[in-house]
C-alpha cells in the first residue's frame, strides 16, 4: 500500500515535471503566431507575420553569423585538442594524467561570469584587443571541458586491444584506427560536439564581457531585444532556434540514443 502510494507520487511528480518543463517552450511557440503585438494567450487566430520580421531585427544577421562562426570553430578546435588529450590521458604513459583529467573538466564548475571577467582583465592586461579572436579563445575554454569529459568517459570504455587485433588481422595502423576506433568512438564524439556547440551558441555570461558595440553574439542581442522592446518577433526567433534544437536532438537520438546521452549504459 505504502509502496503503491510512493510509486503513484513518483509518477505525479514526473508528470508535473514534464508539464512544467514543457510550458515555457510551448508558450514561446504559441506567442510566435500571436496575431497582435501583445502576447494574448490563449490565442485568437494565428499569424506568421512575426517570422517575416526576424531578419529585420536590428543587427540580427551579423549576430547570428558571429554566434555560428564562434560555436562551430570553437567546437571543432575543442574536439581535436580535447580528443587528443583524452587519448593521452586514458591510453598514454602520461605523467599526471589524473590531475590533467580533473583540470580539463574544472572550468565546468566555474561560474561563467567569473571566467568572463577573468578573461576580460587578462586580455586587457596583455593588450589583446581583437574582439573576434578573444571570443573564440574564450569559447574554447567553455567548450573544451564538455569534449574532455565525454571523450575521457568514451575512451575509458573502449577496448584498445581491438586496434591491435585489427592490426594482427592485417590492417595498417591508420586502417585499424579508421575502421575500429573511429566507429566505436563516434557516439561519444557526436555527443561531445553537440554539447559544446550548444554551450557556445547559448553562452551569455562569458561573451558579455568580451563583446564590443559592433561585435555582439546572438544571445547578447536577444537579451537586449527583450529588455528594450519585447514583441512576438522574439518569440518567432526563439521558436526557430527551438526547432533547430529539436532537429539536432532528433538526429542525435537516431545516431546515439538519448538514454545513452543521459548517462545510463542500458
Amino acid at each position: 500500500m505504502t509502496a503503491r502510494l510512493a510509486i503513484g507520487f513518483a509518477w505525479l511528480a514526473a508528470l508535473a515535471a514534464v508539464l512544467f518543463l514543457a510550458v515555457p517552450l510551448l508558450t514561446v511557440v504559441a506567442a510566435s503566431v500571436s496575431p497582435t503585438p501583445v502576447f494574448d494567450l490563449p490565442l485568437e487566430g494565428a499569424s506568421l507575420r512575426w517570422y517575416a520580421r526576424i531578419g529585420r531585427l536590428d543587427g540580427f544577421w551579423p549576430a547570428l553569423s558571429l554566434s555560428l562562426q564562434i560555436a562551430l570553430l570553437s567546437t571543432a578546435i575543442a574536439l581535436v585538442i580535447g580528443t587528443l588529450a583524452a587519448i593521452a590521458i586514458v591510453r598514454g604513459r602520461l605523467p599526471g594524467a589524473e590531475t590533467l583529467a580533473t583540470a580539463l573538466v574544472s572550468p565546468l564548475m566555474m561560474p561563467g561570469l567569473v571566467l568572463g571577467i577573468a578573461l576580460l582583465q587578462y586580455f586587457r592586461a596583455v593588450g589583446f584587443t581583437a574582439t573576434w579572436s578573444a571570443l573564440l579563445l574564450a569559447h574554447l575554454v567553455v567548450t573544451l571541458p564538455y569534449v574532455a569529459r565525454t571523450m575521457i568517459a568514451g575512451l575509458a570504455l573502449f577496448d584498445f586491444t581491438l586496434v591491435e587485433a585489427a592490426r594482427t588481422l592485417g590492417c595498417t595502423y591508420a586502417g585499424a584506427i579508421l575502421r575500429v576506433m573511429v566507429p566505436a568512438l563516434a557516439p561519444s564524439f557526436l555527443t561531445a560536439g553537440l554539447f559544446s556547440f550548444l554551450a557556445s551558441f547559448d553562452n551569455y555570461p562569458v561573451s558579455i564581457f568580451l563583446t564590443d558595440v559592433r561585435t555582439k553574439t546572438l544571445p547578447i542581442k536577444m537579451l537586449q531585444y527583450i529588455e528594450e522592446a519585447p514583441d512576438p518577433t522574439l518569440a518567432a526567433l526563439s521558436t526557430l532556434i527551438l526547432a533547430a534544437t529539436v532537429i539536432l536532438l532528433v538526429a542525435s537520438d537516431r545516431l546515439i540514443g538519448l538514454h545513452r546521452m543521459a548517462g545510463t549504459s542500458e
Partner: peptide
C-alpha cells in the same frame, strides 16, 4: 521513456534566454 527524456533534454538544449523570456510572458 522517450517522451520523458525528450521533455528533459529539449529544455536543457534550449537557450536559457528563450526560457526566461517565456516566463516573462507567462507571468505578466
Amino acid at each position: 521513456r522517450s517522451v520523458m527524456l525528450a521533455a528533459l533534454f529539449l529544455p536543457l538544449a534550449a537557450s536559457v534566454i528563450v526560457k526566461a523570456f517565456a516566463w516573462t510572458i507567462l507571468l505578466r
